[in-house]
């Protein structure tokens, strides 16, 4: 696999903050891989996503390097799609779903509105949106949280980017919808041969579908490597702690008696 982006010594300090949000991070993003960035609150995982996407606020001080194989950072919206955590604030409340999904194709691919709308409908079908032809005329407030996130994914994919960043894209959703959206993202990137940067606090969620994982804590990269290698033989104590704190249905209950 070729390197899409080589990150070296990347540090980010937000204006007015004494401590760096990201501290001397070295990480390669490989073309076509599904890379999960895992960390708890304050780990710097969202700062990394924003630095890569060029979305840091203007006051932030960035040092270090990001070398792109293309020679320049990906064009936001065109070559890079971004899905945020909260679809109700990333969608425009006064534009229809059709307008928002078609805009990417119109703006970046130069399609006329009619063709962009037709394309939007196709993408909505692809993200398994129920009745896409009706959805084109709907407004975000008429949709459920899971449907809004499907729209946000459709909008991010409208210009057929080769690189998709999903920043906690499923954590505002309930578990059932989360599982559907994660499966959808996995299918979409596989089908279109996209690179996916999947930011999450949930190590188990990442373990199910990432090729590689990178674990962050307090702005630093703790360790990175192929998913199974890191999870089956974690080198760092923090990774071991994260694995040990994971709780699923096979974890023994905390209550003493199993049933009343």
């Amino acid at each position: 696999m070729t390197v899409l982006c080589r990150i070296s010594g990347l540090s980010v300090v937000y204006a007015g903050q004494p401590a760096p949000a990201l501290d001397a991070v070295d990480l390669d993003i490989l073309a076509g891989e599904r890379l999960a960035i895992i960390g708890e609150s304050g780990s710097g995982k969202s700062t990394l996503a924003r630095a890569i996407a060029g979305l840091l606020p203007s006051g932030a001080r960035v040092t270090g390097e990001m070398e792109w194989s293309a020679g320049h950072p990906p064009h936001p919206g065109r070559e890079l799609g971004f899905v945020f955590q909260d679809p109700s604030s990333s969608l425009n409340p006064v534009l229809t779903i059709g307008e928002q999904v078609a805009e990417g194709a119109r703006q970046h691919l130069g399609l006329p509105w009619a063709a962009a709308y037709a394309q939007a409908q196709k993408i909505l079908e692809k993200v398994h949106f129920p009745q896409p032809e009706k959805a084109l005329r709907a407004f975000p407030h008429q949709l459920s949280g899971g449907q809004r996130q499907r729209v946000a994914i459709a909008a991010a994919l409208a210009a057929k980017p080769s690189f998709l960043i999903a920043d906690e894209a499923t954590s505002a959703l309930d578990m059932v919808v989360q599982a559907e959206i994660v499966a959808l993202l996995g299918d979409l990137v596989k089908e279109a041969d996209m690179t996916l940067l999947f930011i999450t606090h949930d190590i188990a969620l990442a373990s199910g579908f990432a090729d590689r994982i990178a674990i962050f804590k307090d702005g630093r990269l703790v360790e990175a490597g192929p998913t199974l290698a890191v999870l089956s033989s974690p080198r760092e104590i923090y990774t071991q702690t994260l694995i040990a704190s994971h709780r699923d249905l096979s974890t023994s209950p905390l209550i003493k008696e199993p049933a009343s």
Partner: peptide, 12 residues
Amino acid sequence: ALIAAVPRLVIK
């Protein structure tokens, strides 16, 4: 559906 949706930590 709720049971299937709980992410399992895939270690092996």
